[in-house]
Design a binder for these strands. Sequence first.
DNA 1: GTCGAAAATGACCGGGCGGTCAACTTGCTA
DNA 2: TAGCAAGTTGACCGCCCGGTCATTTTCGAC
Lengths: 210, 210
Amino acid sequence: MPTAARPARVDAVRNRALLLAAAEAEFAERGLDVSIADIARRAGVAKGTVFRHFATKDALVAAVAGDRLARLVAVARSLADAPDSGAALREFLSATAEILQHQGLTFLRTVSECDPVVAEIHDRLLASAGVLVDRARRDGLVRPDVTGADVLLLTCATVHTVGALSEPGSDLWRRYLTIVVDGLRPEGASPLPRPAPERLRPSPLPQGAS
Amino acid sequence: MPTAARPARVDAVRNRALLLAAAEAEFAERGLDVSIADIARRAGVAKGTVFRHFATKDALVAAVAGDRLARLVAVARSLADAPDSGAALREFLSATAEILQHQGLTFLRTVSECDPVVAEIHDRLLASAGVLVDRARRDGLVRPDVTGADVLLLTCATVHTVGALSEPGSDLWRRYLTIVVDGLRPEGASPLPRPAPERLRPSPLPQGAS
DNA sequence: GTCGAAAATGACCGGGCGGTCAACTTGCTA
DNA sequence: TAGCAAGTTGACCGCCCGGTCATTTTCGAC
């Protein structure tokens, strides 16, 4: 949103897109510890160009994470009035698993607290997930004591860990997501020992992302 | 197990124990990325002493992880013939969550593949968990299609992610472990889409631990 | 084609890391 | 108590990382 500024050069736009794609791929394949130099090489630009577009490495991570979260919000909203509320919730969780891949909450953890834009998308995602869970609960398909934050956290936990332990292309996470979803059903549910968290962000913000 | 070697000096034994304790605490509080210098400072020794006891940082991580896994194996074995097989399984999973804290599989991931000793303890843990799961399944308390590796993986995933997102002392993981355990019950279980993995170790070994 | 500004470049910097080693200290044995 | 091997120390090394900046290249308006 430039305030009536110059229209931005085409090579700059192209390089920014290349960088985002390269960073997303590198983060997904090798984790957040990949060096800026590797990302630049993959994008076919020099290292300095990275810092022209993203002031710091954290900002780059935030941009990638924001992209993914925004995609997830779009999925959740498109499912908000699907006929079968249970199928809608399952589909949303599958999309969460696929989009976040095995990075999952590592992204959010290192990012959401610092970057207000990402934090806001994050809040929108929580709200949208809450809508899906509320509908499924009203239809008696989900136990009364779980929230949108709960299902997001469980999904991220599962896909993140499984992804770290299996081959990149594997969909082993589907196995565990099935078990988790079975645990969300209301029939014979055990009482939950602790209240649900109201957000997924960490409180103490542990360290920088580098 | 020294082959009739000298009995080892007392200060060396003491420092080794101090180092293991310091490393365990640092890893638990700040993750595997803590520097060797920080661990040495916490243990009250010089950096060089660390490398006298552990040839490399990975070896130190392996030693700590091996300790924890061995503790877990002991718990599993002590529960192997408890009267209530369902309670035994739940107790084992709680112990897993508590002992691995929020490090969980990050440990195993960076270690088991490389270090044969840890890998062997790891296999023993899988076997012991399998015994507990088999008993609970025979008693009709667990769905027929889950294995010891499954429940370990789900538990580690949950406790790892939750631990990363809540205060250190929190036991919010109990909430999610309850949901997961509910998903393990046989009543109305959905068919699982993928076969269980036979081990928890990653296949491609992604990177060193540093 | 000209030209100025925006963008790209890559050599460079400071710092922190894992790991090494020669010099020094300490616990054990005789 | 003498002596020596085992253990400890901390300065040091090379490496790689995130980030900077003077220089060069490229875009696009006229």
